[in-house]
Amino acid sequence: MNLDVTWAKAWITTGAAVMNEHRVELINLDREIGDGDHGENMDRGFQAVLLKLDDLPAEANPGDVFKLVATTLISTVGGAAGPLYGTAFLKAAVAVTGSAELDGAALVALLTAARDGIVLRGKAESGDKTMVDAWTPAVDAADAARAGGADGPAILAAAAAAAEAGAEATEPWVARKGRASYLGERAIGHRDPGAQSSALLLRAAADTAAGD
């Protein structure tokens, strides 16, 4: 489909459904190396977004959607994920302000801005076992796909696949940011919940883009 406001809304609507569906999975990942609320937090936030999506004016752009997502997540999620996802969508919105339809370059800019926003707020580096470890591979894969001439949906598909691999790759690591860092070696063998929710969200982006 065209990567316009209809897609942006579809992405977020599907994302909300996915967070709801994976609520318990994310809670359980977070119970293992955190405090067991990540699924609840994400579900609460995206349900709140859903309630507001329809209020957007007809002439809204994708950036307006992401702005709405950002402010709603910031004011409903709480915890670490709220400010981090909120900043990600805020920076993403800024990166695509005014565009009615996103081409490959815009998509890469969007993903890069989102990732940079997370790093700005959370100060995590790659390998710290956080959501950054899903977003950075996604950005890199998107950039490579675009350089290779892929279209929007294909860029998002590359990003989603890389995010999924990135989330999985966090499993053997010790964490250096977030609650899992308190566990030292005991975090080994567990996937980072924020990386997992990030992968789910990017997969929703790719899936909706692939549809028609």
């Binding site: 405090d35 067991g36 609320d37 609840e40 937090n41 609460r44 910031i74 004011s75 409903t76 999620v77 709480g78 915890g79 670490a80 709220g82 400010p83």
Partner: peptide, 11 residues
């Protein structure tokens, strides 16, 4: 007070 074990939001 935030949700149980979840930091409150800025609002």
């Amino acid at each position: 007070p935030g949700a149980v074990f979840t930091s409150p939001t800025p609002d």
